[in-house]
Design a protein around this nucleic acid. Structure first.
Lengths: 108, 108
DNA sequence: TAAATTAGTAACCATGCGGTTACGTAAATA
DNA sequence: TATTTACGTAACCGCATGGTTACTAATTTA
């Protein structure tokens, strides 16, 4: 894992999105996170490391345990990017098709 | 490119996000899309293919040109997922830190 | 009709990704 | 103190990813 990650890449993996969902509202040690998935604990550990590098989780040491919890604030970047296109699904009139029809009329 | 793609994966690549931005509000042939990036036309063609497979662009044939345009409606899925965490950045009181402090008080 | 333009795709390549097992270490427990 | 538990990480592996160049086909233009 050498690449510089951003939040968009972090949430591209469905397992990591599930982890974020799982750890929203509760702190869990790695072992308990891993028990929710059909993969080895080290695999989950790697996903948690990526989420940590992106600032999407917070960690608190508790004895030999590491308590992970979601910190979804960085998701704001994603939310803001998608929000720019909100009108495309929130408008009653289908904006895209209307625009395309307009282009066709202009024989673009 | 054999994998089944979802929207989250499609927007993980920064070039593809730029293409979506570029093609929002205007239709462009592949050549003109490619001229906006420092990579070959076939590379851009591949990105466009992925975006098409995810339904994030629409294509209209116009002679030997293919006019691409963004269809951002599928981004709603992403917007809805992030919206579940909106309170983490929209609240004045930092919800996460408050929750963590509460946990610590309980000596969890 | 011949040449140029536009675009898709095949073949290839280096690197990244997501998983595994094996191992080391720190902390808790018997 | 010896053992067990929790965790991180190194090493490895197969496949995906994202780029390239070379080629082909379709359409437009000279």
């Amino acid at each position: 894992m050498y690449m510089q990650r951003d939040v968009f890449q972090a949430i591209a993996d469905p397992t990591r999105r599930e982890i974020i969902d799982l750890l929203a509202g509760q702190s869990l040690p790695v072992k308990d996170v891993a028990s929710n998935f059909e993969m080895s604990r080290p695999a989950v550990s790697k996903h948690l490391k990526i989420l940590d590098e992106c600032g999407l989780v917070v960690i608190r040491k508790k004895g030999r345990k590491r308590l992970y919890r979601s910190d979804p604030r960085k998701l704001q970047e994603v939310a803001e990017w998608t929000a720019r296109y909100r009108r495309f699904w929130s408008q009653k009139l289908d904006a895209l098709e209307a625009a395309l029809a307009e282009e066709d009329n202009q024989n673009e």
